[in-house]
Write a protein that binds this DNA or RNA. Structure first.
Lengths: 345, 345
DNA sequence: CTGAAAGCGCTAACAC
DNA sequence: GTGTTAGCGCTTTCAG
């Protein structure tokens, strides 16, 4: 029967108008609920529109209004696991405003980034969210682009820009305080690569919490390595083989933390009984598969995405919110690896 | 100085025309490289366009051409780790055609899906890629939508639709054949939940490979559980505690496979020496952190995404490629967990 | 209350 | 070679 062969040009206001026996402007008013129309006329038009399955052409609307009801998502580093929760949060906030997301992934290549920026500009996006993994500072887009831009996770190098990211420094403080609160005193700090900004922030938080308690980290300093389970295992070995007592470890990622629990177990010690462990990321597949399951700092990425989108909406409305970096609080997902122990004081 | 205060209406052809002292159609021709123009005129126009940083309005172009140069990505289940590689592949293929991706995530909610479908239709997308986790069959969109649709990973229930997914059945065959080729004969098959289509396809492949070799799986049947490391550990315990010899395991996921390697180790056996293990997913964070690192079936998701996008491009050109399910070959990422062993005959 | 007409920014015929 | 004009689908004055 082929009732609806494909090249089926979309229905226009004109066709609806013809069917309803009115003018196109009446259709527009009826469909948009604007103007003064006799209720029965409005009904008749809407009926025709429904019968024809009329969908107003957003491109035409956009041409007229000067707005596309679209925002660009420019991911500057390769997509990582942080991207999905971020997108989910952003979609939440943007969807409410009938905005759609145009996705661009520049793979860290400046040429590609320029290309995407042109694409987004040509499509007249109403705003752009720039994301990148980790709280690294990146060059501002303000000279390259004419629409509001908000940076998410990654942070702009320009003080007048709006950036939204997680507060992993405070997250680290919370993590160490949690270890202290559950009775640990000999706390080791195991980070990723020393240069990484994530290591630095988390180290900073950990040191501040320790100092506030009048303590030093085990071995007197943090341990630096890579973002891997292997490094966690190695670090655990170094800790238990040292002559220093250890009863708590704060690790800069769940992968490291998981490696640490394994290292502990293989050294014949137990977590949380002998050593409490706290990680960062709340990456379920790691944290829950770990033995014991990991207590870990949740970076609240979905909220970062949601907030970034809302800040962008504000900027698009012409609002002038405070510029600078907005830090989203993290929270501690408590699992067994940090259960309180009764210590023989 | 505020050289470029924001509400900076985009430059139009008219402004370029004025500056270059020509008409707007000349600008159009110069910018698009069409028509017959004196080279110096063309140069002059392009020069003006550059000076004004002119970007042709894609919405206006789209209105005229009836095409938006945009495709919708409709993710029907929640975004999982499969989504990113898929998107990367799709972006690759679409970017070459100057197409952008509009992202929609329905979270498995039919209401949201309808909403997004309307949104995409209103935006006059040129086509839609529907994705979902796993090779589950899902209802066709053909009655709901007027543009070409290609299904990626998930498969349409309508035979005339185009679906692109991975061939995990053959992947399972390859995996088991690899275990056989490396000298194993007593091979256990450890799946996820019995109902899941992923378990079924992978089981099917495993059984076919075993039968072709005149073998049965250890215990005479596959083991079913969940998609977790815990289940892998439990399964390993069951296997080594059974009276049957086991020297190889094919697991339906990397998480299960990793659990199995741990179970093996904790039972005092070694992998690959005593038992070779092969998983599915090639999920780096799992496969490489496993001890030993996992040999695993890579589902080639990026290629699935790329191919789906290319099939969509074909359909958009009016091409009538073969309908039905196109299976993308998987490949085996060989790591240490399946290293060949010299068996005592 | 309803319709005619202008115009958003651009491209494509068709004149000149 | 270049400019004039019509029109993509829609919204919005402004007449009637």
């Amino acid at each position: 029967m082929e009732t609806s062969s494909r090249p089926n040009r979309p229905v226009t206001v004109a066709e609806v108008a013809a069917r309803a026996g009115v003018s196109i402007s009446t259709v527009s008013k009826a469909v948009n609920g604007t103007g003064q129309l006799r209720p029965e006329t409005r009904q008749r038009v809407l009926q025709s529109a429904r019968e024809l399955n009329f969908q107003p052409n957003q491109l035409a609307r956009g041409l007229l209004s000067g707005r596309s009801y679209t925002v660009g998502i420019l991911s500057t580093d390769d997509w990582g696991r942080f991207t999905l929760p971020l997108l989910a949060g952003a979609e939440d906030a943007l969807g409410a405003g009938q905005l759609s997301m145009l996705l661009c992934e520049s793979r860290g290549d400046p040429i590609r980034e320029q290309h995407y920026l042109r694409t987004l500009t040509a499509r007249r996006v109403d705003g752009i969210i720039v994301t990148g993994h980790s709280r690294n500072v990146r060059p501002s887009l303000r000279t390259a682009v004419n629409v509001p831009v908000v940076y998410a996770v990654t942070v702009s190098d320009h003080l007048d820009d709006v950036s939204v990211t997680y507060d992993d420094t405070t997250g680290a403080i919370d993590a160490v305080n949690h270890l202290l609160a559950t009775g640990r005193r000999d706390i080791a700090v195991v980070m990723g690569p020393e240069r990484h900004v994530a290591s630095q922030h988390r180290l900073d938080g950990a040191m501040r919490a320790l100092q506030a308690a009048g303590l030093q980290p085990v071995l007197g300093t943090a341990l630096f390595g890579e973002w891997s389970e292997r490094w966690g295992r190695d670090a655990a070995a170094r800790l238990v083989n040292s002559s220093h007592p250890v009863d708590g470890v704060f690790a800069a990622s769940d992968q490291i933390a998981r490696g640490i629990t394994e290292g502990i177990r293989e050294a014949g010690l137990r977590s949380p009984d002998d050593i409490g462990v706290v990680g960062v990321d709340n990456w379920n597949v790691i944290a829950e598969a770990s033995r014991p399951p990991l207590t870990t700092v949740d970076l609240n990425l979905e909220e970062v995405g949601r907030r970034a989108a809302n800040r962008l909406l504000e900027a698009m409305e012409g609002g002038r919110g405070p510029a600078g970096v907005e830090l989203i609080p993290t929270w501690l997902a408590v699992r067994q690896s940090s259960e309180a122990v009764l210590r023989p004081a």
